[in-house]
Design a protein around this nucleic acid. Structure first.
Lengths: 194, 194
DNA sequence: TTTTATCTTGAACGATCGTTCAAAGCTAGT
DNA sequence: ACTAGCTTTGAACGATCGTTCAAGATAAAA
């Protein structure tokens, strides 16, 4: 009866994500996207509805990848705290050079967008909260294993991680030379509030 | 012989700064600016050269205001550390509600811009470094007064402040309800590395 | 093979972008 | 009052924006 779509939706969203991540929502034009994902406007609009629709899927893809990378860090390490450390080093040090932007796409989005794109803004906020919740789960696991005192509030510690990640990624963008980022990440877990 | 410009350059830059700060570089159109600063395109281009030229002056105005607010905090407090605390509370808590954006305009700019606007990007980076240097001067004063151990590296402490400000301002944007921001700011100075 | 339902294409739309410039307006010096 | 020299004005430019849609291409059902 019909013809199936020939593009791979996941791959397309992945490529769109990278471009949006690099340039931000407003500086990315639909024509930039057409080139990168190799689709014509009609197909893009039939599939994603609008520039905002595609951005929303890109955000979701970014968030899912982040959660998976945290899980992978956990799988590769012997303790939840080491997993958090490894994850932070990946986000802050490795991605500094090789990712589309050294900054978190979610943080960039909440920085860039206003109420004019309220839905996208809310999606980015929700994703940041979701990441924070993943941090919290690892901290609770660390408490269960005795690596972190159960006197401490896992929510507060997770929030602290979130703040340090945002701060360090922004900072890493400002200093051209290499700041001692690895050392600073280790320090986070060696001192208050840990 | 000639006619003098009738607009007040400082006031104009101030208004442009607020709009750029709120919406970011790309989402702010020249027509938005025309309305806000009440100038016609010809006058704007004769005075500032381009959208980028006006943005550059807005960045400089923002930075100057920040340095002055830090100095004012110092004048209003009895110690340099109290001044830093007061400044952070102003930036993070007060401006959260009343400023054009809860985020630092400089941090927003380094997050948004790419090499396509290399000059503006560099100006924002330089301004962030300048603010960090102002923090350092206050910390050195605190060391001279015996409020901070001279064993500690003032540069590292200043960098720590910078990272906490970025992290907290980004975080304050994501949580709609009020996080205990004041408490977190106090904590910064009560624990490592202070 | 023909039909039919879907997907793809790319020219084109109106809106808006950053910017220019000739004309008009204004003020200080004569 | 007149002129010279600057400022201000706003219509207009070409480029690009996000988006639409009629026409062509394709593959499964008949």
């Amino acid at each position: 009866m019909a013809k199936n779509a020939k593009f791979n939706r996941e791959q397309v969203v992945e490529k769109a994500k990278d471009l949006y991540w690099e340039k931000g929502f407003h500086a990315t034009s639909m024509r930039n996207l057409q080139d990168v994902i190799d689709m014509r406007p009609g197909s893009i609009y039939a599939t994603f509805g609008s520039k905002e629709g595609l951005f929303k899927e890109a955000l979701a893809s970014y968030t899912q990848a982040g959660i998976e990378q945290l899980a992978q860090s956990r799988a590769e390490t012997s303790s939840p705290i080491e997993a958090l450390k490894a994850f932070m080093k990946r986000m802050i040090i490795e991605q500094r050079a090789c990712a589309p932007s050294p900054l978190c796409m979610l943080a960039k989005t909440v920085a860039e967008l206003t109420d004019e794109q309220q839905e996208l803004l809310q999606a980015a906020k929700d994703s940041l909260k979701a990441m924070e919740h993943e941090f919290e789960k690892l901290i609770i696991e660390a408490q269960a294993l005795g690596d972190v005192s159960t006197d401490k509030d896992a929510k507060k510690l997770a929030r602290h991680i979130q703040i340090q990640v945002s701060g360090l990624r922004t900072y890493s963008r400002t200093c051209d030379g290499d700041a001692p980022l690895a050392e600073m990440i280790d320090d986070i877990f060696n001192h208050y509030p840990f």
